Amino acid sequence: YQDQEQRILKFLEELGEGKATTAHDLSGKLGTPKKEINRVLYSLAKKGKLQKEAGTPPLWKIAVS
């Protein structure tokens, strides 16, 4: 689980600052079920590491501290 968090954070960091992506996109790029990706995304957002942008589907990006 920790491993997934690292992979997602790394992927988003590599996208570049301010760039956002969807759970669907992450799921495809990382070869992980979207349900699992979503769980990790919401967990990271709760920890303040990610920012969720409203929309359908929601967009995710690295939180700027």
Rank of each mutant, 00 (worst) to 15 (best):
L26E: 00
T32P: 03
Q6T: 12
K46N: 05
G28M: 10
Q4V: 05
Q6S: 11
E14D: 14
A63W: 03
N38I: 02
K29R: 12
K10I: 05
S43P: 01
K52Y: 07
E13F: 09
K49C: 11
L12P: 01
R39L: 07
Y1I: 07
K35C: 10
R7S: 08
P58L: 04
E13V: 09
K61N: 04
Q2W: 06
K34G: 05
D3C: 08
K47N: 10
T56G: 04
K61C: 04
V64P: 15
G48N: 09
W60F: 05
E14I: 06
Y42D: 07
L15P: 02
G48Q: 06
G31R: 12
E14F: 08
K52N: 05
I8D: 01
L41E: 01
T21P: 02
L41I: 04
E5I: 03
K46T: 07
L30N: 00
D3I: 08
G28N: 15
S43Q: 10
D25E: 13
E5G: 06
Q4R: 11
T32V: 14
A20F: 12
P57Q: 05
D25T: 09
I37Y: 00
V40C: 15
K52L: 06
S43Y: 07
D3R: 06
T32C: 11
W60T: 02
L30M: 12
Y1T: 04
Q6P: 05
T21Q: 09
Q4F: 13
G48P: 00
P58I: 04
L30H: 02
W60Y: 06
A54G: 13
T22F: 02
A23G: 03
G18I: 03
L12S: 00
S43G: 14
A45P: 00
G28Q: 14
L59T: 11
A54H: 14
A63H: 10
F11N: 03
K47Y: 03
R7M: 09
Q6M: 09
Q4S: 11
T56C: 15
P57A: 03
T22C: 05
N38G: 05
E53G: 07
K61D: 01
A54T: 09
I37R: 00
S27N: 03
Y42P: 01
P58A: 09
Q51K: 15
L50Q: 00
I37M: 11
K10R: 13
D3M: 14
I37P: 00
K49N: 06
L41N: 00
P57M: 03
K49D: 05
I62K: 08
G55L: 03
A20V: 08
L30P: 00
S65F: 05
L59N: 09
T56K: 15
K34C: 09
A20I: 03
T22I: 01
